[in-house]
């Protein structure tokens, strides 16, 4: 692991209040998190625990009510403006009117990358996610899993230091999801970025991560940080190992203790 001294993402006492019509909802309360460079971490918790909110704060899609945030040594806003992160949403959010390669090309176009370089980069990304044969297809011609792989390729297009993923595989079936988990790890081993992965699946978070941040709801707060000592590279058969089952039950306990 390429852990360096300064954290890649640093959240200090983050709180988030929403104002609905009459009541005030405390979505996050005093969350403090350090994520190391090159680390793969998951934000795990049931719906309403604020894990997606936390990710969106890192992405500067929303601003916290209180607290300090540093992304890649800068403010979240500066990090976004400098394209320090790529983001994958719950749904692929592919543009219907663009073919697969054009969808991956979108951020490159917007950042003003030269055409020759763009083509090279898109080809590399297509190969990385294994969709070379589908580059001229429209999004609707792809399965859900393939669409999400396109979204990952698009997020990696600007070679970001950080990859933010908001429940990217939650709409997929279990088999596809496990397959994509393995694929994601192999992609990650090639690009080496820091990954923050939001999920509500305990096995998924264990299989993928170096560390799992467990969040609990009402109000959303960090209730535990679980280290995953499973060796890398991770292999599918690790899902059957006693250590894996032990971790599942450990994390389950974190929720029951609440």
């Amino acid at each position: 692991m390429t852990a360096s001294s300064t954290p890649e993402i640093q959240l200090d006492q983050i709180s988030m209040r929403y104002q609905t019509n009459s009541t005030e909802v405390l979505a996050l309360q005093d969350v403090t998190v350090d994520i190391k460079k090159g680390e793969f971490v998951s934000l795990l918790g049931p719906s309403g625990c604020g894990k997606t909110t936390l990710l969106r704060i890192m992405a500067d899609l929303i601003q916290p009510t209180n607290g300090e945030i540093k992304v890649a040594g800068e403010s979240a806003r500066a990090a976004r403006l400098a394209q320090k992160y790529g983001i994958v949403f719950q749904s692929p959010v592919l543009y219907d009117w663009r073919r697969v390669k054009q969808n991956i090309n979108l951020p490159l176009e917007m950042m003003g990358i030269k055409k020759a370089e763009r083509e090279e980069r898109v080809d590399y990304l297509l190969e990385l996610v294994g969709l070379q044969d589908f580059k001229n297809k429209y999004p609707w011609q792809l399965s859900g899993g393939m669409q999400q792989r396109v979204a990952i390729a698009r997020a990696l297009a600007m070679e970001p230091e950080i990859l933010l993923m908001d429940e990217p595989f939650s709409a997929l079936d279990e088999f596809t999801r496990e397959h994509l988990n393995e694929e994601l790890l192999s992609i990650w081993s090639k690009v080496g970025s820091t990954v923050v992965f939001v999920t509500h699946s305990i096995p998924e978070s264990i299989f993928l991560s170096d560390r799992v941040f467990v969040l609990s709801p009402h109000p959303g707060r960090l209730s535990a940080v679980v280290d995953i000592p499973l060796p890398r590279p991770r292999t599918p058969d690790m899902r059957h190992s006693p250590a894996f089952y032990q971790l599942i039950s450990d994390i389950r306990d974190c929720f029951e203790g609440v």
Binding site: I87, E109, M110, M111
Partner: peptide
């Protein structure tokens, strides 16, 4: 245009005319 698509543009720090050119106008066809 759905919200996530706008957020994607926002994550690219897109300028308003870019959002129109790349997203809203094609989506309005």
């Amino acid at each position: 245009v759905d919200l996530s698509a706008v957020e994607l543009m926002y994550s690219y720090a897109a300028k308003p005319w870019m959002v129109y050119w790349k997203l809203r106008l094609p989506a309005s066809l």
